[in-house]
């Protein structure tokens, strides 16, 4: 025969509620922080031969010369472009500003590529590849 709950053991104590509340607050905070960081977490990554050589925050305008690689990268209003290159075809300069993680600026002669990375990349997650 089993004895039903003894009166001294209630299902919830006031202290349990505090714990649950604390847990909920921590979880909510964690989620808010995660989302906030994803909104501000976008950067322009500059690669040389596939190796990342710089990570430029899109939130701050700036002009970044990479003299040893022959290119200058400019960030303006959340977009990025190769503003100057010493290459012969200037395809990279002609590409202009990019603002989508799907676009890549490529300077073939200098082996440089620039693209946007960070959680903002999820906004176009429907797309898998851009054909060139």
């Amino acid at each position: 025969m089993k004895v039903q709950n003894s009166p001294s053991r209630k299902t919830f104590k006031p202290s349990d509620i505090i714990i649950v509340l604390a847990a909920a607050i921590v979880l909510a905070l964690a989620l808010i922080l995660r989302n906030a960081s994803s909104e501000n977490g976008s950067n322009a990554a500059v690669f040389h031969n596939g190796e990342q050589i710089a990570l430029l925050p899109l939130t701050k305008d700036g002009v970044y010369p990479f003299d040893e690689y022959g290119v200058t990268v400019e960030v303006r209003s959340g977009k990025v472009r190769i503003s100057e290159s010493d290459c012969h075809d200037k395809i990279c300069e002609k590409t202009g500003f990019i603002s989508s993680p799907l676009q890549t600026i490529v300077c073939l002669p200098n082996r440089i590529s620039v693209r946007l990375i960070g959680d903002k990349a999820n906004t176009d997650s429907n797309i898998d590849v851009v054909l060139n």
Binding site: T95, G96, I98, I127, V129, V130, L131, N132
Partner: peptide
């Protein structure tokens, strides 16, 4: 399904 974008041949920064 995979989704592949074809570039706009007149303004290649567009689709």
């Amino acid at each position: 399904k995979f989704r592949a974008v074809v570039k706009d041949p007149i303004s290649p920064s567009s689709y």
